[in-house]
């Protein structure tokens, strides 16, 4: 006996976990720096390509785990460079619209560079489980999908603990809640910006490896994660990290169930319908916007 309903919930939770992971990075950066980074999904793309090259070099488990670490480090570093070089100068001087235009420009630039260096041919990551599928009676999935889900959960939990326990993590939250008060407490907010951008980008990079493992890797692959991350971020309340975590799963499951029981043609629209409804009824998102 197989259950279509349960199967779709599982499908939704698996993609939802990756939506959450990528969206948490986006919402963190927004919460702390008020930057809507439309190139966020392209940081995921870079993470995915790091995995492509690492796995070509070191195949199997070592390569896959190494890819996660390398993507987090590599994309985190890229985040620091982009924050220093592009966004920091804009933070005080430019308007929101400038900031949005610049991040859109960055997204176009990154896609084109990727096209130039990596070529347009889509790639997939080889599955260290060798494609083992898991049939649990009511639902089927692959071992790799379950691992991606578990990885996303572990990263989200580690992040939660860091943000709530570590001195720097709490300072990130404090800065997001009140930038001026944070400065008055002796928090170096330029350092917080750098750490937040690095962390948010690293999460995008990690999400990119998982997304690339589940799906495919190509220069323009960042567009969908960016779109989903924005939906999740708005749904969860801009800047609200826990909101983003829950909303990622909500979006994942809503899409698969909506696609199953309403209509597949509206699958992508479902996120937007939810957003419109939520914003009409609860303007600050399901879980409230971050303060200030």
């Amino acid at each position: 006996m197989e259950s279509l309903f349960l199967q779709q919930v599982v499908n939704g939770l698996i993609v939802g976990s990756v939506y959450s992971l990528i969206a948490v990075g986006l919402t963190m950066i927004f919460g702390v720096m008020r930057i809507s980074n439309f190139a966020h999904g392209d940081f995921s793309m870079v993470g995915a390509y790091i995995a492509v090259f690492l796995l070509a070099w070191v195949p199997g488990w070592m390569g896959w785990v190494g890819s996660l670490l390398a993507a987090a480090a590599g994309v985190g570093l890229l985040g620091i460079l982009v924050e220093r070089g592009v966004f920091r100068p804009l933070l005080t001087r430019w308007t929101d619209l400038d900031q949005i235009m610049v991040s859109i420009g960055l997204f176009i630039l990154m896609e084109n560079l990727a096209q130039l260096f990596f070529g347009a041919t889509p790639r997939t990551l080889s599955d260290p489980f060798g494609g083992v599928t898991v049939n649990m009676g009511l639902v089927s999935t692959s071992a790799m999908r379950l691992l991606c889900f578990a990885m996303a959960m572990v990263i989200i939990i580690v992040l939660e603990v860091y943000l709530n326990r570590a001195r720097m993590g709490v300072a990130i939250q404090a800065t997001a809640q009140n930038r001026t008060a944070a400065q008055l407490m002796g928090i170096n907010i330029n350092l917080i910006y750098a750490v937040t951008f690095a962390l948010g980008s690293a999460l995008a990079g990690l999400g990119g490896v998982l997304y690339g493992t589940l799906f495919a890797i190509y220069p323009t692959m960042g567009a969908i994660p960016t779109l989903k991350a924005f939906v999740v971020t708005i749904l969860g309340g801009m800047g609200n990290i826990r909101g983003a975590i829950f909303s990622g799963f909500i979006l994942g499951v809503a899409e698969t169930l909506g696609g199953t029981y309403i209509s597949m043609e509206y699958k992508h629209a479902i996120g937007f319908v939810i957003i419109i409804l939520v914003l009409l009824i609860i303007p600050n998102g399901l879980f409230g916007r971050s303060e200030k």
Partner: peptide
């Protein structure tokens, strides 16, 4: 702040989502 000049700003400006303890912890940052 590191030199020892600290202010409690007008309008309190506490970190609303942080606990009282974490607010104090940020004071000692």
């Amino acid at each position: 702040v590191e030199l020892g000049v600290v202010q409690a700003p007008e309008g309190r400006e506490v970190f609303p989502s942080l606990s009282v303890r974490d607010n104090l912890r940020m004071g000692a940052f």
